[in-house]
Amino acid sequence: MNLVVANRKTFRGWLEQPASQLIDHGTSCCIGARAWLHAMAASYAFRHTDGTAIAAPTFLSRRYKWGPTAWPIAWCEAVRANAIDCGVFSAFARAILSAQGVECYSAQVMQLFGPETTAHWRQRWADQPVAFNWIDKELVYHEVVIVVIGDVAEVFNPSDGQWLSPAAAAGYGAVVAIRSECPRSLAWGRHTLSMDKWILTVPGISW
């Protein structure tokens, strides 16, 4: 694969962008919002019915549409939004999984979608002029969650409620690069993820 990044400035922004964090006002508005979100997650955990240890919050992608978010945004605003972006999805999912006692960290990926798709998203986000530019021509920046199981990373995409596969390195939506915030090395398929280091999962991205 030979992917060419169209906009170097945008791409450098991705490389340096930290994972999104929601603002916490520290007052009852945000305290209540976080409590509400945890209670919603508990309502959809079904751990007794399914007999499983981890209850990935797949309900988030059914509850919230994916769409532009005006940053910075606080917990009390985010839970009320009809549409949220991947940064909010990731923040929600991390909070929910951590409350379950699951070791999890934010992660960022670059995914391949192609210009026919990114053109639409660029238009949808056009009303957010000061938004972080997550869209290049073929590639996009996206935020997800790493769940640590032993020395292995499982990557959950809360925006669509699916687990990303390290084997899906080609095709629409393929992950071409990943960065982990976990302080120790983790295996993801045949890749080794190190903290804060972008790992190319396919050869050939040039910029």
């Binding site: 009852s28 305290i31 209540g32 409590a35 945890h38 209670a39 508990a42 309502s43």
Partner: peptide
């Protein structure tokens, strides 16, 4: 039942 407990905690917090 466990989700009701979570809601109880949320109501107490809020």
């Amino acid at each position: 039942f466990e989700s009701v407990l979570a809601w109880g905690l949320a109501i107490e917090c809020a």
